[in-house]
Amino acid sequence: MILWRAIAAAILFAGIPALLAGEIPPDARRSGYSFMGPDTRAMQDDDTSNPGMLFVLDGETLWRKKTGSADKSCADCHGDARSSMKGVAARYPAFDKALARPVTLDQRINLCRTNHQQATPLPYESRDILTLSAFVAHQSRGIAITAGEDPRLAPFVEQGRKLYLQREGQLNLACTNCHDDNFDKRLAGSPITQAQPTGYPLYRLEWQTLGSLERRLRSCMTGVRAQAYEYGAPELVALELYLMSRARGMPMETPAIRP
């Protein structure tokens, strides 16, 4: 009798995708939005008060602007972003066949600039790359994240997961120590979130500007007194990919507001 029960239980559990130790079950995942106070939420909810929308509008202007020696705008190839870019940011970082590795949305925009517009790449975290990225990602607002589904990405997702679990820096802390094991507690008075990257690029009140997920990751690394990876480093891309795949199914919020 006990044996049969054990077998039945084993069969039951085998059907459920195994959660790794410390991982947050899908139905317990929460956007950083849910950790914010009512004022900050209201600021994000109303497009006329959300400062991120100013960047989105600037991005729309850049989208239509001809640039580079090819004298082409994004719109000349991609047309109306409202339809052509819908859902695109939700699947980034995506696998690039030519490079045989994942690229972030910012890197994709710069590949387009170099290859098709014959323009110089925009520096990481510059206003132009952030506005274009925000405009493109905004077309996915409300759409479920699908990043990491491409089987060619599997080894890179795994690399990102390992980095997420790796303790580092003088304070010897891994992402998981705070964002899986201690979310909702307070670090120096501020709530620790689950690190679900649903709203990037986003407007951080602390920064007083829009910033990328890479900027956020680098500031966490600096916080634990680790040597932050350079912008665009394969490790940062892998970490970004893992975080996006970890948030798969959650809706995009770009441009989000965070404290």
Partner: peptide, 24 residues
């Protein structure tokens, strides 16, 4: 434990340039 070892410099990974070789 998540509590750092405040007087240790070994067994750490990617310690920031300004903190290398120094205890907290």
């Amino acid at each position: 434990t998540i509590m750092p070892s405040y007087y240790r410099t070994d067994g750490l990974v990617r310690v920031g340039r300004n903190f290398t070789g120094k205890p907290i």
